[in-house]
């Protein structure tokens, strides 16, 4: 198949009218949020733990999805911004007694500021930007590992305080899950609204044809800054929840491997698809828990999974599901 034919084939699947895509996204939202809220809470125990981890990485993957899948700004340092959010939130709670909601907001702001700084400093496009984001991620990891006085270095931060909201201390996993699931639900809904608004269309234009976006009056530089800042802020929010799940905070949770894992999540789920980001996060969090005997092969398996999904499911699981349902509809007609 020629490149043009492939593009047309992909487009014929991806592009439906805006209204039907909007409805489809809300339908997927209802299903995913329904499963998210029902399964971990009803099954409890280990499944609740899995639900907590899935929710955190789903939030992070949503942030990366709008950057990479929607706006085409491939970041290879996404975990660094989770790290900035995690340390900002925990240190504020632990050292300054800041309540969790304010610490969560500070985490988002700190990660957003770091994202903006990265975008401003780098000011590159294409492959140079991708390589620079990788470098930025490494630098942040080194700072977290070596600024011992503030971060505890590789020994990490222990005795993570419980989440306090409106005077209540949330010390159970169920309570933590409700907070996380609520955050994920709200963010997911906001991102659906965003992706179908003018900003979202500008992001998509930027991701598909930057020169064309510029020529029709879209302020490409501004939207690039905006999407990077937003994606990093969302990563910061995800990071703020991570220490409360792990009961421990270490720079090793924010390495290059974690960034790569986030990328595999959105690729496997379906680039450009918000539900795909959550599905990809769920698979990459749940599957290793059932394959603990092969833990040493985790990144090897993830690599194979990435290559296999690019070959067999280029539009990811969400895209394959969409094709299947479209095929069934056409067959029924």
């Amino acid at each position: 198949m020629s490149t043009i034919a492939k593009e047309a084939h992909t487009a014929s699947h991806q592009s439906t009218s805006g209204v039907s895509r909007h409805r489809r996204d809300w339908a997927a939202f209802a299903v995913i949020v329904g499963i998210l809220w029902c399964l971990p809470l009803s099954l409890g125990g280990f499944y609740l733990y899995l639900g907590l981890a899935v929710a955190i990485y789903a939030i992070s993957a949503l942030g990366l999805q709008i950057m990479v899948g929607l706006a085409g700004q491939l970041s290879l340092g996404h975990a660094a911004f989770m790290g900035i959010g995690a340390y900002t939130s925990v240190l504020l709670q632990k050292n300054a007694g800041v309540p969790f909601p304010a610490a969560l907001a500070a985490a988002a702001l700190a990660a957003a500021a770091a994202g903006l700084l990265m975008a401003q400093l780098i000011r590159l496009s294409g492959v140079y930007f991708k390589i620079a984001t990788f470098g930025f991620g490494v630098v942040v990891h080194q700072i977290l590992s070596n600024w011992t006085a503030l971060t505890g270095g590789s020994a990490g931060v222990r005795a993570i305080p419980a989440i306090g909201v409106l005077g209540f201390q949330i010390e159970t996993r169920t309570g933590l899950f409700v907070c996380e699931a609520l955050t994920l639900t709200l963010l997911y809904a906001l991102l659906i609204r965003l992706s179908h608004g003018k900003i979202g269309r500008a992001f998509r234009a930027l991701g598909q044809n930057e020169a064309a976006a510029r020529s029709v009056g879209i302020a490409v530089a501004r939207y690039r800054m905006m999407v990077i800042t937003l994606g990093c802020a969302i990563a910061g929010i995800a990071g703020a929840y991570l220490p409360h799940l792990m009961r421990f905070l270490s720079p090793e949770s924010f390495t290059w491997y974690e960034s790569l894992t986030c990328l595999i999540m959105i690729t496997l789920g379906g680039l450009g698809s918000l539900p795909g980001a959550i599905i990809g996060a769920a698979i990459l969090i749940v599957a290793p828990e059932y394959l603990r005997d092969f833990a040493q092969y985790k990144m090897f398996a993830f690599g194979i999974l990435l290559v296999a999904s690019m070959i067999l499911l280029p539009r990811g699981i969400a895209g394959a599901g969409m094709s299947l349902s479209r095929g069934k509809r056409m067959h029924a007609q």
Binding site: S15, G18, R201, R204, Q208, N209, S215
Partner: peptide, 25 residues
Amino acid sequence: RAFQLTNLFPRLSVLENIRLVAQSM
């Protein structure tokens, strides 16, 4: 400006392309 080579958003629909431009203006 229109270009020698088509300068469109290939994975958006025809309507979305026009709407994107109208809205950006």
